[in-house]
Every structure is written in C-alpha cells, then in structure tokens.
Amino acid sequence: MTLPLITIDDVSIHYPLGRRLIGTPPVLKAVDHVSLEIPKGSFVGLVGESGSGKTTLGRAILRAAPITEGRIRYSDGDVDYDVGSLGKEALRDYRTRAQLIFQDPYAALSPRMTVRDIIAEPLEVMKLTKSREETDQRVREIAAKCRLNLEHLRRFPHAFSGGQRQRISIARALVCGPKFVVADEAVAALDVSIQADILNLLKALQRDLDLTFLFISHDLSVVAHVCDYVAVMYHGQIKEQAPTRQLFANPGHDYTKTLLSAIPSLDPDDRHRARVYDPDA
C-alpha cells in the first residue's frame, strides 16, 4: 500500500478578526478540521461556493497559507515532507514539486515579458538549469506539450486570446517538472468553446507527465467530467467526499443535493424551484 501523494490530516486554518483586551479574540475559521487524501496520479476535485475555504485549503497545501492546526504531508517516493514545517532548502525543493495554475490568464501573465521569458522565469528564479541553452530547451519542450508554437514564444501576452494565455500559464506552472498541481478555477474565466479545450489539455498532460491534480472549482458539471474523486466544501468543512460517479449518482449530504439541483438544466422542460440548504436542518 503506497502512501497518498498528499495527506491532509485534520487541518484548520484560522484568521484572527481584530483584537480583544480580555478573552480570546474572534477568529474566522476559513478551514475547519478538514481531512482529505490525494492519491498519486489522481484528479481530485474540490468544489464549493465563494467563501467555502476551497482556495485557502489549496494555498495551504502549497505552503501559501498558514496552517493553524493539523498536518499536511507530501510524499512522492523521493521525499517525504511535513508541509507546515519545511526548512528553507526543503521549501525551495518543494516549490519545484508542487505548483499552481491561476484562474485569470489575463492577470497572471506580465504584459512586459515575452512568452519565452514568462515560461522560463520559474527555472531561472529557482536556478534549475545550468545554461541558457538548457533553459530554452526546457521551455520549448513544455511549450510544445501545451500546444504552443515556437513562434508564439517571441511574442507578448497581449497578442493572445484567453485560451492561448491559459496554455502559457499552464506551461509556466509545469516547466519545473512538478509532480503535484493545484488548478484553482483554471477554466472559470474562459468561454465555453475554449473551456473544453483546456480541460482536455489538462487531462492529456496529467497522463503524459504523470501529474496529480487538485482541481478547485465552483462548477460541478466541469468537475464531474474531469475528476475521479470529489470533495464538497461548505463553510470551511468538507461535507462529503466520494468517487465522482458515486457522488453524482447518489449524493449523500443535503448540501450536495442542493448544489446539484441548482445547476441550470439544459432541458427547457426541466424547470424546478430552487432548493434551499438549511445547515441546521
């Protein structure tokens, strides 16, 4: 039995809300006692509405949000890290193993850098290559995998459409050869006709590069199509987690049922009143 790539064990992330002279100050429980395992090679979906804590949890796995309680463990066979207490060297190494794809490809790319420089930057910052030739080689390889042309590399981001920009953004995240990728609403800003293309690309990259994905999204129908396992978050807690088919065929939690029934059906004759979730029921 191999260890999961990521093990989230009873993790809480609290943010203080102001100070008090006497007594304990109030806290915002962004993530509240969450446990989740992400097996190697899986495509795990994390769904929830705004403020549910899904992004905070994703950031905590990447050591970009402080963990208040609990433990996040990363174990890929080469290394075994306790993400919350990484030293400087280990953290630098962890950054090459775990990466993030952002939501908005318009905001994520510097308008003053060429596409080649944008993709090469992580390699240069982390000093992963020895020569400019090696850097160029790595950039060309990953660009081709993300279906970018070599002539694209000389241009600036403004010359690209949303779908192409997201491919550049993906190439940048993958250039340092990570094993684990958090995709935070990676298709939410894209048009429908382009969205399917990026989803297919992510799935192809997962197979080719042996990646493990945490796919954070508010869109259940997208998650249903790309993920093999889904966790549903609400107010900082995971309300339900199950293999995708099981969750969609047979939702167990009332909140999951509410979420599923809220997706507008493409059938004009399937018009029903909205379900309202009552956490106290």
């Binding site: 779908g163 048009d191 429908v192 006709s193 382009i194 399917a196 989803l199």
Partner: peptide, 26 residues
C-alpha cells in the same frame, strides 16, 4: 451545435468534451 457539445453535461459523464476548433478571432 458546437456550443452545446462543448458543455459538460451531468447526465452523461462519459461523453467527451468537444471544444470548438480554434479561437475567437480578434
């Protein structure tokens, strides 16, 4: 037809997502 085929549908999780080829032109 392309728009409808590109939409992920909940009643058929095995249906492949078919993007519309190319990008929206400038």
């Amino acid at each position: 037809q392309g728009l409808i085929n590109a939409l992920p549908k909940l009643d058929d999780l095995d249906a492949p997502l078919t993007p519309i080829a190319g990008d929206i032109p400038s």
